[in-house]
Structure formats: C-alpha cells, structure tokens
C-alpha cells in the first residue's frame, strides 16, 4: 500500500498569552507524540471529543501552524481542507467564481479562460450550474455553500483532502446528499480523505480506518470493524457505547 501521508512523533505548541509585554512568550503543548500513516485511497477517520486536538492536527498538516516538531511527509500535491461551517468559511464579499478561482491563481495558473473553464468544470462536479459563478455566498443555502467549500478544496486537484466535520453544520437530509457527493468525488478524482468527526456513527459508516484521540494524544488506531468490535482501550469503548 502506498502511503500518502506519514506523521511521526508530532508535537504541536501554541504561543500562550504572556502576562506582560516584557515576559518571554510561553509555549503550551497541545499535541503529544502523534504518529500515524494514511494510505492512498482510504478514508481515515479521526474521532475524539472537542478540544482533543483534531483541528489543531489538521491545521498543522496543512502548514498553518508553525510551532511543531516531529515530521510530516505528504507524498502528493499540497493537501486541502473542507471546513465545518459553510456559512462563515466563505468570504462574504467575493463571488463564488472568485472564491473558486483563487486556489488556481495561487498555484500559478495565469490564463483567464483556462481558470474559468476549470471553475465551471468544478461547479458541475459538485452539482451547481454555471449561474452560481456570479453569486455571493449570502445568496446560497447551507448545502449549496458546503458544495462550494468542497469545490474550493478540490479545484487545485489535491490527492489528500482533510474534511473537518463537513456535515455537522447541515440538516440531516442535506448531510446525506453531501456525504454521497463526497463519495462520488472520491471515486471520480481518486481522492484520499482524512475525515474528522465527533459523530461516531458517521465515522463508522464512512471510514476504512479510525484513529481515536484524547487530550492531544493518540489513544488507538485500527480498522473500523475491528476497532468497533474489539476496542483495546477503555476510552474507545466508552466512545463507541455513548
């Protein structure tokens, strides 16, 4: 199996607010010795209570958090991310077209016609027609916005996508549609997902392997079925039973 992401002995810190402007800023450790691999083509679930370090981990993998030691190796294009809240994660002053064009422009694509064609193509893939190009996020429903978020993440053609609770802000009926869309895109574009959630049922349905986290540490990693039937750790059992 080809590994698309290898994380070894990762420790992540945050700058703690120092008490005075003269004091040296202190560091607060939030992730402790995290190691795991993600195989190409799988759906790798990360579960844990809120505050356990799931989101910090995904931000660090994306390079948005500079304070860490250990190694993160991804063997593909820069991974992208789908965020939880589709209402606030899109720039309200930008049209959908501009939001979707940005990753392409940042990756160095210059030809305007080419960018536009790619944006239309991506809109089609997430089930939105071309009329959405000139609209603003405020004119869209939650489900449509999450489709835009997914399109934004996928437009630069990453191989690895981190989805941070992509369903939890949506209605149940729309959750099913978005889940279906994510599976379809995975097949069409050959994607690998890291799926972050606190919802154990969603993770059970979707993921091939699961990593359980607690207080910034890895509790257990295993195949989904094995983990559910035979949890080694007391915390994992507690999480499944809840």
């Amino acid at each position: 199996m080809v590994k698309i992401l290898e994380v070894k002995n990762l420790n992540v810190y945050y700058k703690a607010k120092s008490k005075s402007i003269f004091a040296r800023p202190e560091r607060k450790q939030v992730l402790f010795d995290v190691s795991f691999d993600v195989n190409e083509g799988e759906i790798f679930g990360i579960v844990g209570e809120s505050g356990c370090g799931k989101s910090t981990l995904s931000k660090t993998i994306l390079g948005m958090n500079p304070l860490y030691d250990g190694s993160i190796v991804h063997n593909s294009v820069k991974p992208q991310m789908i965020f939880q809240d589709p209402y606030s994660s899109l720039n309200p002053a930008w049209t959908i077209g501009r939001i979707l064009s940005e990753p392409l422009l940042l990756s160095g694509m210059k030809d305007k016609a080419e960018v536009k064609a790619a944006v239309y193509d991506m809109l089609g893939r997430v089930g939105l027609d071309e009329s959405y190009y000139g609209r603003y996020p405020s004119q869209l429903s939650g489900g449509q916005r999450q489709r835009v978020s997914i399109a934004t993440a996928l437009i630069a053609r990453p191989k690895l996508v981190i989805a941070d609770e992509p369903l939890s802000a949506l209605d149940v009926t729309i959750q099913a549609q978005i889940m279906e869309l994510l599976m379809e895109l995975k097949k069409d574009l050959g994607l690998t997902y890291i799926f972050i959630s606190h919802d154990i049922d969603v993770v059970y349905q979707l993921c091939d392997r699961i990593m359980v986290m607690k207080d910034g540490r890895v509790v257990e990693i295993g195949e989904t079925i094995e983990l559910f039937e035979n949890p080694e750790n007391a915390y994992t059992r507690q999480l499944i039973d809840a």
Binding site: M64, F83, L90, N91, P92, L106, T152
Partner: peptide, 10 residues
Amino acid sequence: DYVRTAYSKG
C-alpha cells in the same frame, strides 16, 4: 473562518 479558509488555500 473565511480567513482560515484563505490560509488553507495557500
């Protein structure tokens, strides 16, 4: 959040 999205886009 859209700022976080922008950073994640690169």
